[in-house]
Design a protein around this nucleic acid. Structure first.
Length: 654
RNA sequence: GGGCCCGUAGCUCAGCCAGGAUAGAGCGCCGGCCUCCUAAGCCGGUGGUCGGGGGUUCAAAUCCCCCCGGGCCCGCCA
């Protein structure tokens, strides 16, 4: 069926015509240029062959005519014409329908068709949120993209493993742990979700510390008479105090307990001490404390992510990596490396000479003269930096999983860091790893009118967002399907609400900053998860109603001529025919949004046909009824498949 | 100052890598459609100097250069 796609048909036609003229054209390129014709009378699909004609040294018209001859040899092509430089053709709908429906009947075989010949072992690392506050909308974009990427690659036949990197050696975790130490207890108050609790303690601790620090700075500025800076700092203090007040409102006793316990201490030193003790495992009490705090947060993450259908194969602790000695190994390699340097008095790697390698620059896609600042590896207090540990983690990911390739789904703002890690790998002798670790970058998500800050506890959590989505979905269910049992209404609302969020997040290209509007994601109209799910439920319902009346599809007695009888049926058949090709393209280009827009188009075609009143169940002719039901079955099957890949569970009723 | 990403209809976005046939969706707005397999649906209408200016080309939303606007990066943060 992949070969029956218009892309392959035209590519083969053009390439054979060119070969007859003694030249070869790049079939991939032809495929890229295929498009639907702008007008029905021109045929179904076409391609402009002007650029290939130049290559073959004939006129575009001539090449187009030859390609037409080639196309006409294929029984799937009912007509083909040359229109100027364009080669256009129309499908033999009956044959296309027959091919389609036969493959759809045996779904397993259908799925095999878009698998690669040689599967790769691929790791997708995604989400990896700092375990110090609940997940927010930005993490949701990361998680949705990452999980969908993994599902896409799996559907293509690759062996995929998803991993979450628990970043527990950073300063932020130490601050959170410090807060809990000052507070003297771990457990959240009853009814408070664990990650929310960690987030609150973290924000309070961080903010109280910052206020202390800023006050000290203010005194100094006042003494030194630096008025302008003083006023600037004073304004900042006002903001901080306002944030602190908001935080205190949420949990006055907790706030006061932490603030009081901090009196007379040196919080900066305390936090550094926690970091050092933890990274080098100097005392078990600190280890237990940090692990407990992080563990609470992760439990919250898991809960939230599972609502979106996201689970991980492996959770990697950054600390375990350090304790295993792998980080030290990287440092040793760095010290004896020809790229080692001292930058601002600290051990660092200088990539200048590495980047002189033109071949390497090309492989990494870096232009000539591209500069990368030196990468500092160790702080003066002896602790390592995130980037350094990330180098060790990269090696670990490849080694542990036997991966051929690793995708890191990480915000675009970390581009430089991700590049430095790759360069460090290459510089230190892990060349294969460096070349095969790819950064899947995505831009930020904005909520209209929101400014978020984890440090200050200013954020809308993903939980809140999902809850709101579900409750909106709930009210629609109540309105549209009041007769359903309570339990089912609840299930539908949960499925639809969470799916709407997930779907919206992968429908915009990763490279674009997006504005997430819950209202739009939940518009429940076209172009949304609810619309697609509704379409699926509709198809499922037709088959259900049919079987209630004792009507089942007799696959041996399908009258394929029915496919030709009206435009809407025809359109639907052709749309279905495009699925495998679309899926392959979405995987190979790492663009889940292609699958999203395909699903929209398929749902449109199905709903148009449905609404035209061309009833399947009401069809008196058995052969034609078999055809229509088989078509409904195909829509249901393809929709379910695509939704699953997007991490959305279709439901039969809504 | 240097670098990366984004700018397409009132709003949210496809299309740009791989240049070609009157630039596509959805939302919004206006007007229709439930005795008929689920109306979370369908049909019709409305709406665009593709940020601006140059260039390359038979042909530019798409390629190149300059400029403007927005975001991000250039930490002994992650």
């Amino acid at each position: 069926m992949l070969e029956a796609s218009p892309y392959r048909l035209l590519a083969r036609g053009v390439s054979r015509a060119a070969r007859a003229l003694g030249a070869a054209v790049d079939e991939r390129l032809v495929e890229f240029l295929v498009s639907e014709t702008p007008r029905e009378d021109l045929g179904d699909f076409g391609v402009n062959v002007a650029r290939f004609a130049r290559q073959v040294r004939v006129s575009p018209q001539k090449l187009a005519e030859l390609a037409v001859e080639e196309l006409l040899k294929n029984p799937l092509v009912s007509s083909a014409t040359a229109a100027g430089p364009f080669v256009n053709f129309s499908y033999n709908t009956r044959l296309a329908a027959k091919l389609l429906i036969r493959e759809m009947r045996d779904w397993g075989q259908f799925q095999d068709m878009y698998k690669v010949d040689r599967p790769l072992r691929i790791v997708v690392e995604h989400t990896s949120a700092n375990p110090v506050h609940p997940l927010h909308i930005g993490h949701a974009r990361n998680a949705s993209l990452g999980d969908t990427l993994a599902r896409l690659l799996k559907a293509r036949g690759h062996i995929v493993q998803t991993r979450f990197y628990i970043n527990d050696l950073g300063r932020q975790v130490a601050v959170a742990a410090y807060g809990f130490k000052l507070l003297g207890r771990l457990d959240p108050p009853p009814g408070v979700k664990k990650d929310r609790w960690v987030g609150l303690v973290y924000a309070i601790t961080h903010t109280v510390m910052d206020i202390r620090l800023l006050k000290e700075k203010l005194e100094k500025l006042k003494e030194e008479g630096r008025d302008e800076e003083y006023r600037e700092a004073l304004r900042k203090l006002d903001e901080l105090v306002a944030d602190a007040a908001t935080l205190r409102e949420q949990a006055p006793e907790v706030f006061d307990a932490i603030a009081e316990a901090m009196e007379g201490r040196d919080p900066e030193r305390d936090v550094s001490e926690i970091m050092r003790s933890y990274e080098y495992r100097l005392d078990e009490e600190t280890v237990r404390l940090v692990r407990s705090v992080v563990g609470m947060c992760l439990e919250g993450f898991r809960e939230t992510l599972s609502r979106m259908g996201i689970e991980f194969d492996v959770w990697d602790w950054e600390s375990s990596l350090a304790w295993s000695g792998l980080v030290s190994k990287v440092l040793e390699a760095a010290r004896s490396s020809p790229y080692a340097t001292v930058h601002k008095g600290a051990l660092a790697l200088d990539f200048k000479r590495l980047l002189e390698d033109e071949e390497l620059r090309k492989q990494l896609g870096l232009p000539e003269g591209y500069e990368v600042p030196p990468m500092i590896l160790v702080r003066s207090d002896g602790t390592t930096l995130y980037t350094t540990r990330d180098v060790a983690y990269s090696i670990y990911k490849f080694k542990e999983s036997g991966a051929d390739r690793v995708y890191n789904v990480i915000a675009a703002e970390q581009r430089l860091e991700q590049l430095q890690v790759r360069l460090a790998l290459i510089a230190l002798g892990w060349r294969r790893e460096g070349l095969n670790q790819l950064h899947y970058a995505y831009e930020m998500v904005n909520l209209p009118g929101q400014k978020m800050s984890g440090r200050r506890g200013r954020y809308i959590t993903l939980d809140e967002l999902l809850d709101r989505a579900v409750s909106l979905a709930r009210s629609v269910v109540e309105e549209k399907s009041p007769h359903l049992p309570e339990e089912e209404k609840r299930r539908i609302a949960e499925a639809v609400g969470t799916a709407a969020v997930r779907y919206a997040l992968v429908s915009v290209s990763a490279s674009k900053p997006m504005t997430f509007s819950l209202e739009e994601a939940l518009s429940f109209e076209r172009n949304s998860a609810p619309y697609i799910m509704y379409t699926y439920a509709r198809a499922a319902n037709i088959l259900e109603r049919a079987s209630e009346r004792g009507i089942t599809i007799d696959w041996e007695k399908i009258d394929y001529s029915a496919a030709d009888e009206n435009k809407l049926r025809r359109k639907l058949v052709l749309k279905l025919l495009l699925y495998p090709y679309t899926l392959v393209k979405a995987v190979d280009e790492l663009k889940p949004e292609l699958l999203v827009s395909y699903l929209n188009g398929l749902a449109d075609a199905f709903n148009e046909w449905y609404a035209s009143g061309d009833s399947a169940i009401g069809e008196p002719d058995p052969g034609k009824r078999n055809f229509k039901l088989a078509m409904v079955h195909s829509v249901k099957t393809v929709t379910a498949s695509a939704l699953e890949i997007l991490g959305i569970k279709p439901i039969a009723r809504m």
